[in-house]
Simulated assay, not measured.
Amino acid sequence: MEFKQLFENYRKPGKVKVISFRPKRLEAVRFVSEILAIKDKGLEGDRYKNTGGARQVTLIQAEHLDAIASYLGREKIDPALTRRNIVVEGINLLALKGKQFRIGEALFEYSGECHPCSRMEESFGPGGYNAMRGHGGITAKVIEGGLIKEGDDVIPL
């Protein structure tokens, strides 16, 4: 099998576990069961909603939350502390590099890795930044708007 074929081979779609947004900088994360993705802007009500930017939506893998917790010596971590919009499970988000993918009614395009910021030290304490390195998830652009719900599939195209 050639690499091109390998890059197109997924065992199953991922699933949306958690959806959140922050209306303003430094404001607490708000959890919702569904949210509207707006074409070329981001998620309704989120502070990062901006026209044309590369960081319209942030996603992180639930499996990486477990890794981060392990590095910090914790049993679990609150997904709100990562400050990411959508937590998914069952799919490697880095495998979406260079691809479009659908979540619910919305169509997204991978736009980059979501590296941790210095706020991770505040969120998790000493070592928080390094615990998230390589586990911060991805950023995406909204290509087609639509409703996203907890439990929706994450389908690479």
Rank of each mutant, 00 (worst) to 15 (best):
K12F: 12
R119D: 15
R55K: 13
G73D: 15
K17G: 02
P23I: 03
R25G: 03
T139D: 06
Y10D: 05
R22C: 15
G125Y: 12
K15R: 14
Q100F: 02
I60Q: 07
G127E: 12
M120G: 00
L147S: 08
E121Q: 10
H64G: 00
V87H: 02
L157M: 06
F7D: 09
G52K: 02
F108Q: 02
K99C: 06
N9T: 08
L107T: 09
V87K: 01
L93K: 03
I103D: 09
T82G: 06
N9R: 02
K4G: 00
C114H: 01
Q5D: 15
P79C: 05
T51N: 13
G45V: 05
L6P: 00
Y110V: 04
G146E: 08
G128V: 14
E150A: 03
E121C: 02
G146I: 08
G52A: 07
K41H: 15
G45P: 10
G134I: 04
T58P: 05
I91S: 11
C117Y: 05
L6K: 01
Q5F: 02
F21Y: 15
I91Q: 08
I103P: 13
K141W: 07
Q5P: 00
R25D: 13
D153M: 03
R25W: 10
Y48D: 14
R30F: 05
S20T: 12
V57L: 08
P13K: 00
D153T: 00
V88C: 02
G45R: 02
K4A: 15
N50L: 06
L107E: 11
L81F: 11
R133T: 15
E63Y: 03
A140V: 11
E121L: 13
I35H: 00
G151T: 08
R11G: 12
Q100D: 08
E8R: 04
K15F: 05
D152Q: 11
M120I: 04
L94S: 07
R11L: 09
Q56E: 13
V16M: 01
L36M: 15
A69E: 11
C117N: 10
G98R: 03
D46L: 09
F21K: 02
E75H: 01
K17Q: 12
V18M: 02
R74L: 15
R102P: 04
N92L: 08
R74Q: 14
G136K: 01
L59V: 13
R55Q: 13
Q61H: 00
F108Y: 10
G90Y: 04
L6D: 01
E144T: 10
